[in-house]
Design a binder for these strands. Structure first.
Lengths: 139, 139
DNA sequence: ACTTGACTTCAAGTTGACTTGAAGTAGTAG
DNA sequence: CTACTACTTCAAGTCAACTTGAAGTCAAGT
């Protein structure tokens, strides 16, 4: 059992962020000691997953969906697989970007427009589209 | 030569965004026809690169640095290579996330904490840290 | 019992990346 | 020449994801 400062120290996540995450339903405290929140240690891996999900470009709402917002042990496996596929597509795009950057660092062609590497990069870029959702406090 | 609505139609980027991008120095118009901006067609690939850079999680300021803010043909090659390496590290993280998601979709172990796949995921997640910069209009 | 200080809530502020709206202007069709 | 419409500027608004600040509470040490 951890209080918020212990959790903050262990995870490196500021207390204000932890309170915010609880407010929007990303993590849960199991009770109070007086006023103070009491957390179970298993929020630590959960926080790691949240950080990773953010690094992957997911919104907090999407992450909440992926992790399961409540004490549900059975999360939707199809949805997880779909998310994995989405991340995989993202990786493909980033690979194109990386290659494009490396190419730009070495290519001395007069016009990038004529370069096949650059053209491939652009084709992939143009298939992109973004969608975002809104995060609202749970209750 | 394109006016803003043509550029918007060709690129799929709303005109308001194009004006904003010009304001912060991501793209340039080469002049005016009356009030109206006139763009060169080569902003199209540039817009594609901007979108790709965003997909990669870079801020507009970072993207401006990568692409070169002005009509400089010689952008810093070492910096580009460094950015490519940064993207590559990001890809590694995302690969871990993807694998983690796939694993979570199939693993039925009672506690994820005991699972080596999950532990690897977490190790990578914990090495993350983020930094952001501010975007200000040029001039 | 009293002080201390880390916790609490709640509202408001911040940042990046845009969008929206009002008010004005200018090239083109009739 | 007059209208129309698509452009223009500029200020303000929005949204996600937090942070900050004020004012209050409470457990623990002296």
């Amino acid at each position: 059992m951890l209080d918020i400062s212990e959790l903050s120290r262990e995870s490196g996540v500021p207390a204000s962020k932890l309170r915010y995450y609880e407010e929007v339903g990303l993590i849960r405290s199991i009770g109070r000691k007086g006023l103070r929140r009491v957390f179970e240690p298993d929020v630590l891996p959960r926080l790691a997953l949240i950080a990773l999900g953010q690094a992957a470009g997911f919104s907090l709402v999407e992450i909440r969906e992926m992790l399961g917002q409540e004490k549900e042990p059975s999360i939707d496996r199809n949805m997880l697989a779909a998310k994995a596929d989405a991340v995989d597509r993202h990786i493909k795009e980033l690979s194109a970007l990386r290659d494009g950057l490396r190419h730009a660092a070495t290519c001395t062609a007069p016009s990038h427009l004529e370069c096949p590497t650059f053209q491939r990069l652009m084709r992939i870029a143009l298939t992109r589209q973004g969608m975002r959702k809104k995060v609202r406090p749970t209750r």
